[in-house]
């Protein structure tokens, strides 16, 4: 055991230098950690790539805003760029970084695509096509996908229950709102609601206990 006079401590490791002050202890000693490994450098290839993409996206957003402001004195088309990069982040970069499960990816997709279509409708003043057709058909597609995945994966952990339940609620609220505002076309929303409801009823019929457990777990009861 070596003693560092400068730090007044005994050093158990076979070190050539004191780990506290760096002063030389024994020139002949091999620098070896007694109780720790010699660390291997582990490059993380995923994280740097995500960081570069994030920074490039931010640069693109700032540049497009600057150009748009400079040429048209508004951010009319730059807003599309901002939304596009936002979707890139929440639907691709974040799921990769956080290692989302399939159910989480589907939930995020449903939520953000719905919000995006609503934004497009409002922003382009073309109210109607999204709420009446595009959004309900998207929900319908996701409801069918969720059902297929649940069956295909043998009901593993009931992960798909959360997106299904979300679709059911969204389509029900949407259907009620469309009816209240006397919308001419409500059948796509009704179909989306009925398909989600049927799937959930079937799940309750055949896997009642696991469905109840999923609700408790996913909704924090």
């Amino acid at each position: 055991m070596k003693h560092c006079d400068f730090c007044n401590v005994d050093i158990i490791d076979k070190k050539s230098n004191c780990p506290l002050c760096g002063k030389s202890l024994d020139n002949e000693a091999v620098n070896k950690n007694e109780f720790y490994p010699q660390y291997a450098f582990e490059p993380d290839r995923r994280e740097p790539a995500i960081k570069i993409l994030e920074k490039l996206s931010l640069l693109a957003v700032v540049l497009s805003m600057a150009v748009n402001l400079f040429t048209d004195h508004t951010i009319s088309w730059a807003l599309y760029v901002i939304i596009g990069f936002f979707l890139l982040y929440v639907l691709i970069l974040r799921p990769i970084r956080k290692q989302y499960s399939l159910a989480q990816i589907l939930t995020a997709l449903v939520f953000y695509l719905t919000a995006f279509m609503l934004f497009l409708e409002l922003y382009t003043h073309t109210w109607g096509w999204g709420v009446m057709y595009a959004i309900p058909f998207t929900w319908l597609g996701f409801a069918i996908l969720s059902g297929i995945f649940t069956l295909a994966r043998g009901y593993v952990n009931f992960e798909m229950f959360k997106p299904m339940f979300m679709l059911l609620l969204l389509s029900l609220i949407s259907f009620i709102l469309l009816m209240c505002f006397d919308c001419p076309t409500v059948w796509p929303t009704l179909v989306a609601f009925l398909v989600s409801a049927t799937e959930i009823i079937l799940m309750f019929m055949f896997r009642f206990k696991r469905s109840v457990r999923s609700i408790k777990r996913d909704f924090g009861f």
């Binding site: 730090c7 007044n8 050093i11």
Partner: peptide
């Protein structure tokens, strides 16, 4: 900070033995 801490303990009369991963 670490060095000063152990140095203070030594000054107060305690014998300190160290090992590290550095």
């Amino acid at each position: 900070v670490i060095r000063e801490f152990f140095l203070t303990l030594a000054e107060l009369g305690l014998k300190v033995e160290i090992f590290s991963n550095i």
